[in-house]
């Protein structure tokens, strides 16, 4: 997927200042930086949860420009979203459905998958994230880590080309972070999923990421392989950030 020349203003506040980014198939990119640097905004522009002020997004061959809103645009946005799954910091599971129903809902409603097929796909995914036994529980009964894993399964059910993770472990108690990160790792090693992850988990980045990007003040200040970034930073800001985090 590609991001070209992306700008995003919130009113008069320029949050994204001309971002260019390319992510290859199967690549895992970790984006990190201070809060307010724009990294979440960038992620949310990819599936148009935020509408870019200017620039182009390309996901799995679909190109879409930011900036204007029309009827056709809505359908095109939907098409992009079908190719990009998202996992939120706050999980956002649907409380009135069981976990299995949460996973099944979108394929049945949006893609018209027959319920029986959706059910087996759902159980399969829940097994993959290690929660098959919780299929008939409601989210309220699950721990944060379990909910987030269900959220990952829910996004995977739509068979996306790329998975977007918006600080997936930031709302979790420390002992629950590991289970989510290991699921994410298996997505890369087992499924070779293309992933863009906004996170502070440097351990995860070091292990799983192919590329790390340091976001600062609306621009990508530096990027490179984990080894390059952690050991050979070029910019002082990056160094400062690492010192604070590692």
């Amino acid at each position: 997927m590609k991001v070209e020349n992306l700008y995003k203003y919130f009113g008069s506040l320029e949050v994204l200042k001309g971002i260019d980014m390319e992510v290859g198939k199967g690549e895992v990119v970790v984006i990190f930086g201070r809060s307010g640097s724009g990294k979440s905004t960038l992620l949310r522009c990819v599936n148009f949860l935020e509408d870019p002020t200017a620039g182009t997004i390309e996901v799995a061959g679909l190109r879409l420009e930011g900036g204007h809103r029309g009827h056709q645009k809505r359908e095109q946005i939907r098409q992009v979203r079908l190719r990009a799954g998202m996992v939120f910091q706050q999980f956002n599971l649907f409380p009135q459905y069981t976990t299995l129903e949460n996973v099944m809902l979108a394929p049945v409603e949006v893609k018209g998958v027959p319920k029986a097929d959706a059910r087996s796909i759902g159980m399969d995914l829940l097994t993959k994230v290690g929660l098959a036994d919780k299929a008939d529980e409601h989210p309220i009964r699950l721990s944060g880590g379990q909910q987030q894993r269900v959220a990952i399964a829910r996004a995977l059910a739509m068979e996306p080309e790329v998975m977007l993770f918006d600080e997936p472990t930031s709302a979790l108690d420390p002992e629950l972070i590991g289970e989510v990160l290991s699921v994410m790792k298996s997505l890369s090693t087992d499924l070779h999923m293309t992933m863009i992850v906004v996170t502070h988990e440097m351990g995860f980045a070091r292990e799983v990421a192919h590329r790390m990007m340091f976001f600062n003040d609306g621009v990508i200040l530096e990027q490179g392989t984990p080894d390059e970034m952690i050991n050979h930073t070029k910019y002082p800001e990056t160094k400062k950030f690492f010192e604070a985090v590692l």
Partner: peptide, 26 residues
């Protein structure tokens, strides 16, 4: 919560699907 709408949107649901299946029940 707005996150519910966002999750439904991210899954590719239309306005009608969102309202009927996610928002209005809550």
């Amino acid at each position: 919560p707005h996150g519910q709408t966002e999750a439904a949107e991210a899954l590719g649901m239309t306005y009608r699907q969102r309202m009927r299946k996610v928002v209005l029940p809550q």
